[in-house]
C-alpha cells in the first residue's frame, strides 16, 4: 500500500517538469533545496525515499544499513572527495547563499533517467497494473553505474548491484 506512490500516468509529466504532489514528491524537492541544488537529481530522490519510513524502499535501504542519516553522510563524503580531486573544499554555505526562487524545481537528468528506468521496470514486472512503487524508483535510481549515487554507495561500502536485485525482486 505505502509502496504505491503514484500511478504511472501521473508520472508522465515528470519527464519534462516537476508537477506531481505527494508527500514523497515534495520530499524530493525538500532534499534538493537543502542541498542547494537547482534541479532534483537522483540522489535527492534516494534521500527522499530513505526519509519515508512507510515505504518499502526505505525498508530495503535500512536493511542494507542505509538510513537517511548514513546516506546523507555518504553523499557528503562523496562531495568532499569530488571537490578534493580539484584541490578544493566546499565553501561555507553562508558565503554562497542566494535567494531561492519559490517556484518548483524541475527534474535533473539523473532523476529523469531514474524515473524512466523505474517506469520501464514497473511495466515489465506488472504489465496489467503498472503502478509505480517506491521499490521501482529505488531500482531505477540504483541502475546508474556511474555518477553521484553510485559513488556515494561505493564510498559507503554498499553493494549497489545486490541492493538493486532486492529492489527488483521485492513485491
Amino acid at each position: 500500500m505505502a509502496n504505491r506512490l503514484f500511478s504511472a500516468p501521473r508520472l508522465a509529466p515528470l519527464l519534462v517538469s516537476w508537477e506531481i504532489a505527494s508527500h514523497v514528491g515534495l520530499q524530493f524537492e525538500i532534499e534538493a533545496k537543502r542541498d542547494g541544488a537547482k534541479f532534483i537529481e537522483a540522489e535527492h530522490m534516494l534521500l527522499a525515499l530513505a526519509a519515508d519510513p512507510d515505504s518499502d524502499a526505505a525498508r530495503l535501504l535500512t536493511e542494507s544499513g542505509l538510513d537517511h542519516q548514513r546516506l546523507a553522510s555518504a553523499l557528503h563524503e562523496e562531495h568532499r572527495r569530488t571537490l578534493a580531486f580539484a584541490g578544493m573544499t566546499a565553501p561555507n554555505n553562508g558565503l554562497v547563499e542566494a535567494t531561492e526562487l519559490e517556484s518548483s524545481l524541475s527534474l535533473g537528468t539523473s532523476a529523469k533517467v531514474a524515473v524512466r528506468r523505474a517506469l520501464i521496470a514497473s511495466r515489465q514486472d506488472r504489465p496489467r497494473r503498472p503502478r509505480l512503487r517506491s521499490t521501482d524508483l529505488l531500482f531505477g535510481i540504483l541502475q546508474a553505474e556511474l555518477g553521484t549515487v553510485a559513488r556515494a554507495l561505493a564510498i559507503a561500502g554498499i553493494d549497489r548491484a545486490a541492493l538493486m536485485s532486492r529492489a527488483r525482486g521485492s513485491e
Partner: peptide, 17 residues
C-alpha cells in the same frame, strides 16, 4: 568502469565545480 577513481573522479569534479 569504477564509479570512483580515475576519470570518474575527474568527471564528477567537473560537474560539481
Amino acid at each position: 568502469p569504477s564509479p570512483l577513481d580515475g576519470p570518474a573522479d575527474g568527471l564528477a569534479a567537473a560537474s560539481a565545480l
